[in-house]
Amino acid sequence: MWKKSLYFVCFTVLFTILVACSNGEETADTQTGGSLVTISGSTSVGPLAEKLAMKYEEENDVKIEVNQIGSSAGITNAISGVSQIGMSSRDLKQEEKDSNLQELIIAYDGIVVVAHPSNPVKNLTMEQVKQIFTGEVTNWKEVGGKDMEIVVVSREDGSGSRDAFQEIVGYESGQLIKNAIVASGNGNIKTTVAMNKHAIGFISFEYVDESVSTMDINGVQAKAENVLAGQYELSRPFLFVHKEDVPGSAKQFMEFILTPEGQKIVESAGAIPLTK
């Protein structure tokens, strides 16, 4: 019996080594076969991409893998070929543009400044937002609220949402108030803000629900219409980036997103469709 199990053991070891070694070719095969689409990147674009993928998989014989690992990592993956498509919630930086990536805007998104539902402050000017996030204003009463400390919740450095937010509001990463809580995703910011009556943070349109209260910026409500009308300034494009030679299945998926059906999903996911 022991002899047998020893053989078994040797066999499995050999087998796994073989499998591990042959893996490189195998993935290449599946890629040319076009049955797998690999997508990675922004956690803001991720939920939308998952919903699009779910719908698309229902109707087509394709498997779509969505990894939410952040814009920068997604772009890097698209450049290196680890993923076929990278998701980005910020514009490409110069060195990223230099590496021959194609950009596709799949939707627009607004960034919403959120606070605890109990917070009476419902409107901030862009200047006040900047002052709060850079630590010039540290008490809610300075912006018309209760006398209590402001707890800033930001995304981590490298996040596309954070880059976009900082660029529009007008401050640099290094200026962020030092004791800001750093959360690693939209959902994480929302939960942190929802749990803390002192907190202020920013999240993507898709994530907004009743657990947090939203702020108007300069008196303009965070709504899709206002973004499209150009009145609500905190907005940005959602990008798919890819190399030119991605498999047909990935291209077809991207074409699907731009169809009216795809854009309908964009809208129902809480993002802003292109065609309006």
């Binding site: 920068s72 490298g158 996040s159 750093v182 690693s184």
Partner: peptide, 11 residues
């Protein structure tokens, strides 16, 4: 763990 997903290059 927080920044691993977002990091590239020197970072």
């Amino acid at each position: 763990a927080l920044e691993m997903g977002y990091a590239a290059g020197t970072h």
